[in-house]
């Protein structure tokens, strides 16, 4: 049986993990490589590294980071943030990333998803969607781009379905309404998207307690749950999350 995945997310700026990290006995809590290796050793199923600066200057830094992570981490990891071209995807995959996530660039140039999937296979093309509840259209969500700062008229459910059709192999779905609240994932959003697509969906934004992970999997129908602060700050270890899910009958890789 395929297990549900627990995915810690590391936001990286200038080669450091930001948002603060405060768990285990790390020599250097801000080093993405050391943190990634620790997560790998303590049972994370996968990792996501997001380059939150995503400038031309940071591009080189992130490639070097991917190389260093790949030398030390033997679980899959996704890299995202500011990726615009097939050549950049190629460089990151070659440097050791398993998957690359695209967001703003795919909205501007949906063909990027097709080009990338035909060349690398769709399993390494992740479509990241930042979703916000629409004020104008109740019950709908709108796609936001440029790190969530710019709302568009695009409907999230339609975009997710189109993304699958174009070649995305997975959706990383962040609820901007839930993100940072620790009040739980937006499972209405998760359910609407998982009903609309047949590719795996990763829920992101809102994890605060263990029950939230269960709810996203059962109510939201997602294949994986992503979290940052509840694990970085040591509220829960990966093992605690997995033991909790297993105790409630969810298949996990313990």
């Amino acid at each position: 049986m395929l297990t549900k995945r627990i995915i810690p997310c590391l936001d990286v700026k200038d080669n450091r993990v930001v948002k603060g990290v405060n768990f285990l006995n790390l020599r250097d809590a801000g080093d993405p490589v050391e943190l990634g290796a620790r997560y790998s050793d303590t049972g994370a199923d996968e990792l996501v590294f997001l380059d939150i600066t995503a400038t031309i200057r940071s591009r080189k830094t992130i490639v070097e980071l991917v190389e260093r992570v790949a030398e030390n981490v033997f679980i899959p990891f996704t890299v995202g943030g500011g990726i615009q071209t097939v050549e950049q995807i190629d460089e990151l995959l070659r440097s050791g990333a398993e998957k690359v996530s695209v967001n703003t660039a795919a909205v501007g140039n949906p063909n990027l998803l097709t080009e990338a999937s035909q060349r690398f296979g769709n399993q390494c093309v992740v479509l990241a969607i930042d979703a916000r509840r629409s004020k104008e259209r109740p019950g709908k969500w709108q796609v936001c781009v440029k790190a969530g700062s710019e709302p568009t008229d695009i409907d999230v459910i339609e975009w997710a379905a189109k993304g699958e059709e174009l070649g995305a192999g997975e959706i990383l779905l962040t609820s901007m309404d839930a993100d940072g609240t620790k009040a739980g994932y937006d499972n209405e959003l998760n359910k609407a998207v998982t009903d609309a697509v047949n590719i795996p969906v990763i829920a992101s934004g809102g994890a605060g307690i263990l029950e939230h992970l269960y709810d996203a999997i059962i109510d939201g129908g997602v294949d994986a749950v992503l979290m940052a602060s509840i694990t970085h700050f040591g509220n829960y270890t990966i093992r605690q999350m997995k033991e909790y899910l297993a105790s409630r009958g969810i298949a996990v890789n313990l």
Binding site: L2, T3, D45, Q123
Partner: peptide, 13 residues
């Protein structure tokens, strides 16, 4: 074959 999530992605026993 259809009828399941595809790609098959993640840790399988």
């Amino acid at each position: 074959p259809p009828g399941r999530v595809i790609p098959h992605m993640g840790w399988n026993l």
